[in-house]
Nucleic acid binder design. Sequence first.
RNA 1: GGUCCCGUAGCUCAGCUGGAUAGAGCAACAGCCUUCUAAGCUGUGGGCCAUUGGUUCGAAUCCAAUCGGGAUCACCA
Length: 596
Amino acid sequence: MNIEHFLSSTISQVINELFDLSTVSNDIILQKTKKEFEGDFTLVTFPYIKAAKATPEKTGELIGEQLPKKNSSITKFNVVKGFLNFSLSNDFWLSEFKSISSEAEYGIKPANSSGKQVMLEYSSPNTNKPLHLGHVRNNLLGYSVATIIKTQGHEVIKVNLVNDRGIHICKSMLAWKLFSNGETPQSTGLKGDHLVGKYYVEFDKVYKKEIQTLIESGVTKEEAEKQAPIMLQTQEMLLKWEANDPDTINLWKRMNGWVYDGFAVSYKKLGVDFDKMYYESNTYLLGKEVVQEGLAKNIFYKKENGSISIDLTNEGLDEKVVLRSDGTSVYITQDLGTAIERFKEFPKISQMIYTVGNEQDYHFKVLFKILAKLGYDWAKECYHLSYGMVELPEGKMKSREGTVVDADDLMDGMIETAKETTEASGKVSEFTQEEKDQLFSTIGMGALKYFILKVDPKKKMLFDPKESIDLHGNTGPFIQYAHARIKSILRDYEENIESISISDSITLHEKEKELIKQQYDFPKILTESAATYNPAVVANYIYELAKLFNQFYNECSVLKESNADIKQFRIKLIETTSRIIKNGMLCLGIEVPERM
RNA sequence: GGUCCCGUAGCUCAGCUGGAUAGAGCAACAGCCUUCUAAGCUGUGGGCCAUUGGUUCGAAUCCAAUCGGGAUCACCA
């Protein structure tokens, strides 16, 4: 039973009896007592002083005196100004701990499934260039939110909508055709997505040169951008693609195949996966019928030039074109179509989450508004999981200026640094090569993932490569290390941990009680994290837990404890801690090693 | 210009459904390894929570304005 809920109702009852106030238990807000004061929970009494017709201190006293009588778990209280701090008994926390430690999947597995099905879209790459740091944040965020939502008993369908067509794809195709002499990933040893990305960059170089030449011959910049021969060729290629020209389609399939092979490697390294893939080449025509439907319902209107728009000025938004004058669809047209398709295909889903950067906040506002106007009541269950940009110390990432941080390079660099640091520590000398490689990868990726996930997704973040490699302080490796230490202690303890029964006569020390209280919070943290789509809540919580363990470790020798009951209790306590650390980290998609 | 987001220690970030003396980590300095893994622990210094006003017993937190930073406002995606 939830302690706060239980306490709230007790306090509510006391207040009603004392002051004749009609409060409900929901109105009673308890907070955890700050470290500097004695007690477990705190009630702020300011709101009741009027009804009590007494000073804040007196009010606290009056309430405090009643509490132990109502609830034997409450043993003592103290009043500081308008704050009533009270303590729960040793027995109470001990029995809470027993129940926490008996649940192998404490917090991460709800008693029963909610029956709710959620679709979560993330990643959504373009097939003309490799993944970069921004994608890394997207992937880590999407994956961890999906995992955290699962802990609430919901079923999550992870989907990826690949942007595999359009003018930008044709750019890399054309450049490859013109300049590559038939290079392939096999012939060059390059990862497929990198090879294609190379020609996307190549296109831009040639394009800029052509523009320059045209400008020098007296053409305006704007005209030059339109007239550049390579751009004209690209547009021609797009038309051929749309006309299903066999050569173009084959080249497109071939190059996209290379990219998918490359992405598969990156996704595997990142540890993310998907239940279903969507491709824009299949979805880009969707949504046109929806536009006709909306036109018939007078939600949309036709302009003289034939384009179709919606007027959202009454909603504080602007007008938005939903179909071009030539009858082709725009970005939002296919998003409308795709959303409707998905709810048809998966009739059970009750929520649709889009993991997309915050530069598209406006787009999603419009999208959801249009869906609502079209009469789909699930529109209110659509959520834009918006995240801030990743910036570098030297400023924003610009793909054209080559200041992007490539995802593969980044991951390899992190793993390499983990390797150097670990080998320098000399702790892995008896590991096999395979074990070492596994460990370096776990630590390097743990550092990267934690560094990104510990900050609130909504906020833009600064990625300092030097700092991200740090393994000290509030970092993934710090937490992994705490876990490895616990495992090391448990290995030395030969008895079967499962068989330990905890004596009722244990008197909890301060650090032990703190650890139990922190453990007790785990399910609440997951619920909060799932409700706010914020993995950072879990990340910062796990860090606190690991830190508490380190402090405990420093103060109390577990194995050297002579009292058998206490020793067994401590073994169990840190075993539970390691489980929560592990489960919490797995919710973030971060592995924890058994030893390091 | 309209709309939206953000301004907390030198740096990176917590805290924001209003509550006690605003917290961590990094960096700096000083301690702790013959004792279960020192990737650790302890301590010191470091703050007009952008500014001003409002709401109230009480504001980093809510509201307004101002200043600074960013995003967006395409028949691009």
